[in-house]
């Protein structure tokens, strides 16, 4: 089956450090895949490259048959690539409603509209997104006053608002307790299943990874060293070597 996202020879260096060093990857439509690897493996840099945070040095990224290499973040958003962040990254003094509404209006191409009144736009859709993540009751609160768990939910809600085709989640459960983690990942799974959404997530919590991900990619020192189903990864010698220091 044709891949929704395919990456070839992607590389990025900072100074002398090769953060991402020639990554090839294909993710098919509807796949939920986890990227794991030790700290400093280049996972977040890889995310930054495919979400347009900064340009790569080498390589190509193709999304849905079209080359998207080095397109800036707003253009990628328009094509349906949305991401949430490891460290909560919201619009702190705006309400939850506005946080989500802004993403929706942007998706509807209304950013440059100076004539409509923003209060009347996309109300239902916004409320629907908020209720999907269980924040409907808090819509009128200012986002900086939320608990960490709710902020994580809102962060994901912003990424979900525009009905993405590819959702990138950078450590969606960071800083959450096990119960909250399960809730959030359950949420993502549910939506992904319903909308046939493709999800790539970075995660350190192996319980989460092995219960949610259909496939797993392992990064180490900027390279992809293994990929496959959770079963395959569990027994993969390279992975055991990296994580457990086995072999040699």
């Amino acid at each position: 089956m044709k891949a929704l996202l395919s990456v070839r020879g992607l590389a990025k260096s900072f100074g002398g450090l090769r953060a991402v060093d020639g990554v090839d990857l294909d993710v098919r439509q509807g796949e939920i895949t986890a990227i794991i690897g030790p700290n400093g493996a280049g996972k977040t840099t890889f995310f930054n490259l495919i979400s347009g945070a900064f340009p790569c040095d080498h390589g190509r990224i193709v999304f849905d048959g079209e080359e998207i290499t080095n397109l800036p973040a707003p253009r990628l958003f328009k094509r349906g690539i949305c991401r949430a962040f490891q460290v909560v990254n919201l619009f702190p003094r705006l309400t939850l409603f506005e946080n989500v509404q802004a993403a929706l209006l942007s998706h509807q191409g209304k950013v440059f509209n100076c004539f409509l009144h923003v209060d009347r736009l996309a109300r239902q859709e916004t409320e629907q997104v908020l209720s999907e993540v269980g924040l409907a009751e808090k819509a009128s609160l200012v986002s900086k006053n939320l608990s960490h768990g709710d902020q994580k939910r809102l962060d994901i809600a912003i990424a979900l608002a525009a009905k993405p085709r590819l959702l990138l989640l950078d450590e969606p459960t960071a800083g959450l307790n096990p119960k909250e983690s399960r809730e959030i990942m359950g949420l993502v799974e549910g939506i992904a299943g319903r909308e046939n959404l493709t999800v790539i997530f970075i995660e350190h919590d192996m319980d989460v990874v092995f219960s949610v991900a259909e496939t797993i990619r392992v990064m180490h020192q900027g390279r992809l060293i293994a990929e496959g189903t959770p079963q395959v990864i569990k027994g993969h010698p390279e992975v055991r070597k990296v994580y457990l220091g086995e072999g040699e």
Partner: peptide
Amino acid sequence: RAEFIGIP
């Protein structure tokens, strides 16, 4: 974050 919700 604004850039990541499509705002140029």
